[in-house]
């Protein structure tokens, strides 16, 4: 029971797993970097980042680099904790 509880619905998608994986090992990533790494379309990536932002698993910072708008993402403490729990649950389900 408890293992199943740790499987987090918020991470139950390839793109969201990818976003969290990238943000676990990088201090931050911008929209373009995520897009290239994950091979997602703009709209697709935007909707998934929004969902993760709503759960407060990632932090979104909008800023300007010169005149170009730039969106930067980083994982929150809560997001990192939840993602670790999620990975542990996955590993247990596989039976290592």
């Amino acid at each position: 029971m408890s293992i199943i509880n740790n499987i987090n619905k918020a991470f139950d998608h390839r793109i969201r797993l990818g976003i969290m994986s990238v943000l676990m090992v990088n201090d931050y990533a911008d929209f373009k970097m995520l897009k290239e790494l994950l091979g997602a379309t703009d709209g697709n990536l935007a909707s998934h980042t929004k969902a993760l932002e709503k759960e407060e698993y990632i932090l979104v910072e909008k800023q300007f680099i010169g005149r170009k708008p730039n969106t930067r993402y980083s994982a929150t403490k809560l997001g990192k904790l939840q993602f670790k729990k999620h990975i542990n649950a996955l590993e247990k389900l596989i039976g290592k």
């Binding site: 797993l17 969290m20 994986s21 676990m24 090992v25 990088n26 990975i87 996955l90 389900l93 596989i94």
Partner: peptide, 21 residues
């Protein structure tokens, strides 16, 4: 099935290494 979870784990590993190394 556990196949999906296995895919998830390998996707996570792949993204972590590709994005940082």
């Amino acid at each position: 099935d556990s196949n999906k979870y296995l895919d998830d784990i390998s996707e996570i590993k792949n993204m972590m290494s590709r994005s940082s190394r």
